[in-house]
Design a protein around this nucleic acid. Structure first.
Lengths: 130, 130, 130, 130
DNA sequence: GTGGTCTAGACCACA
DNA sequence: GTGGTCTAGACCACT
């Protein structure tokens, strides 16, 4: 699975990394219980700092995406994620809110916005089914 | 129009402020050409520093939501925002992508996700039509 | 002679006004010794503050474009402006410098830049000759 | 590359700084992808506040001259600036207009004015070719 | 009274 | 050590 880091982006590198791993899990390119590269080798591959990879792994562990074993390295959580709860929906809501607001100002109508979401679901889910 | 700032949140205060003003514009609670409070008075009302308000106003000016007249204060841009272009859609896409990915992991299906978006459009647009 | 003020511009209103009067003199639309509107009437016409017009007139007086008589109002200086001296050239140089620098960065070549200057001379001088 | 700030001047310090960096890029004294000093060190060198340097850097980032990497500091944009578009020419036109007008009043003829522009192009471009 | 600029000093996230 | 953010207090140009 290819990971691409763009250090110029506003989003922190560790977040970019975590997001791409999450996407890998979502699409199935990273299977449950699959081993992830070691912190050291991934850092070397991506040309970033050890601490940065570590931070991403720890974040993902805390969120339940990974299990991190001290010596064995990190694996994708073998059990599925806990399903979305009220808090997750609220977080999603708060994140979407300003995006929808700005979209309305820019005359993006509801259907257009939904089309964008659908296309993302398509893109990510169909990879999973292949 | 009521604005509420939560200094505890991770999102910078000036971003919270800017987002709420954008939402005000989206819903029509802030009409085109409407005058906004001066940086000083708004800062005092919100209990934050005037530079923070200033930063929010300048961001919104740069994005085209506001016009800042040197001595008259800020007004909502009397002309509608430039419609969404390719870049805006791309930005939206990049923002939505990790949200959709995580949602898939948490077993939020497409319909559920779209429902959330629709409810936000409802909430914001119906205010506008009242 | 028509004067148009744009309060949204970054340039102060009094500067906009002064510049347009200078342009009027350059093009001959304002003849030597011609009377200018009173501070009061011009301010009313343009919908701006008395002080602002006053400031513009005083600036132009100080620079030698106008003569301001206490009761008779302002007139265009009946004698031609003092010719450009070393200081004026230096000021011009300092103003042009960053414009040329940025133009180089944006791949505006010298000929293109000169063409722009020529077209401005054309525009302003030919009015004078009509 | 030497930078000199004059706090007495009417032009804001951050603008003076930004202009000199732009000139550095135009002349090639600042090469694409070259690293700039950190805001702190440059501020110390110039004897100004780090926020002032920050403002200059952010302005240049926004205009596309620099890239600011969160933890690595600022670099000159490795890709050339977007070429001048209609808006840039219009901005240039508006800036040149009052300069040409005043020059006409001061009996600076077209050739004299163009000579000044040419000399600036000479000065800046020939540095580049060395 | 308005925003623009500058200074100063502080804390934080990131690498 | 880097930039990002926030606060505080000051002066200035403009209206």
């Amino acid at each position: 699975m290819l990971i691409h880091i763009n250090p110029q982006l506003e989003t922190p590198i560790y977040t970019q990394l975590a997001n791409q791993i999450i996407e890998g899990i979502a699409t199935g390119r990273l299977a449950p219980a699959e081993e992830l590269p070691s912190v050291r080798s991934l850092a070397a591959d991506l040309g970033i700092n050890l601490h940065t990879v570590n931070k991403a792994y720890n974040y993902l562990k805390q969120e339940g995406f990974l299990q991190v074993h001290r010596q064995k390295g990190a694996i994708v959580s073998p059990t599925p994620m806990p399903a979305a709860d009220e808090f997750y929906y609220q977080k999603l809501h708060e994140q979407l809110r300003p995006m929808v607001a700005e979209s309305i100002c820019r005359q993006v109508d509801e259907e257009e916005f939904l089309k964008l979401c659908r296309s993302l679901y398509q893109e990510l889910v169909t990879q999973k089914e292949e």
